[in-house]
Amino acid sequence: MYTKKVLIVYAHQSSGSFNAAAKNAAVEVLTAQGCTVDVSDLYAMGFKATATAEDIKGEVKNAENFCYLEESKLAWEQGKLSADIMEEQSKLTEADLIIFQVLLDISDLFLSAPCCTNSSLPLQFPMYWFSVPAILKGWIDRVLTNGFAFSQEKRYSQGIFKDKKAMLSFTTGSLESMFSPTGINGDMNVTLWPLQNGILHYCGFQVLAPQIFWAPSSALAEDRKSMLESWRTRLQGLLEEKPLSFISLDCFDDKAFQLKPEVHEKHASKEFGLTVGIHLNKPLPPHSQMKAGC
């Protein structure tokens, strides 16, 4: 039995959606394993998506040339961030695992086929325009503030949240084949790189492989049920999973932040690049943003 705390950051408007079913499943299965599960239902909360001076209580340091990065860091240090941000930061601080559940692909907005009615099944976020919905992006912008979630000295493998795990769980509107290296949408590994490396890994999280529900809106009812059952099975051992592999900050020099010559030389003769982003002008490593150990 686990004694872990899980935070699900959930971004979908409808309680009858496939995403809601996946979220509910995660809550049920993880709770049954002894986890304490907290859900931030962003739409139900009416979470503010824009990062503005309103996020800071009292006077700001420089109202004429307002810089959110600097002002929010100072406000965090002084305990002057708005109550909604501080509440989410408190949840994140307590959590061992953070699951971002959304819809990722804009066509999934128009879900017309009936979804599985099993209320015990979990969901996450829908992919919007090959990224996260605006309300979730706003959560990221406002909650992962400078100082609280990262700093110049504490990021990537040395990041503030290096002892925590995080993952994306999302639906697409397009078929899996359309997100392949030869598909019209391009390689899903490329789509995921900014989210998983540029946000989660940047803050130090150990990033678990994403849970992707491919085009549930166009799937048969039995196939949607199978997707959710597979998610439930994965949830049984989720906290023991090996995270995705990213390059350690130690592999870069501390001035220009370029790969150290010895690291570059070590990989010069290898078939694939190191990662999707740091590929050394070589073919991208297959599935490196979707499967651990690749």
Results as ranks from 00 to 15, higher is better:
L192G: 04
N146Q: 06
L208H: 02
S112L: 14
Q101D: 11
A149S: 13
N19F: 02
A75F: 03
R142Q: 08
D84T: 12
A256F: 06
F246V: 05
I140S: 03
I199R: 00
L104A: 15
H12M: 08
G159K: 03
I135S: 07
K164Q: 12
F130A: 13
T233P: 00
K242E: 15
L175R: 13
K165Q: 12
L74N: 04
F66K: 04
F110A: 14
K255T: 15
V9G: 07
K48D: 14
G79D: 08
S177W: 06
E28W: 05
S217W: 01
V102W: 05
E70K: 11
L274W: 02
I8C: 07
H201W: 10
N197I: 00
F252T: 00
G34M: 11
A113R: 15
A256N: 15
G198Y: 04
A44I: 09
A292G: 05
F150V: 07
Q78C: 01
A256Y: 05
S82N: 11
P210Q: 04
S131W: 03
S269A: 15
E241T: 04
S112A: 15
M227K: 02
A51G: 11
D38Q: 15
L284F: 13
S119C: 02
Q158G: 12
S180K: 10
S245V: 11
A53I: 13
D223W: 00
N146M: 01
K61P: 00
L244K: 04
P194R: 03
Q196W: 02
G46H: 12
L74E: 14
K291C: 10
F246P: 05
D254M: 12
G147Y: 01
G273W: 05
T171V: 09
K5I: 02
G293H: 06
F246S: 04
Y68I: 04
S230N: 10
L228I: 03
G16R: 07
C35K: 09
G138P: 08
S177I: 11
V37L: 06
A25Q: 09
W129V: 12
L238G: 09
I184E: 11
I278H: 00
R234Q: 14
E222W: 00
N118E: 11
C203A: 10
W129H: 08
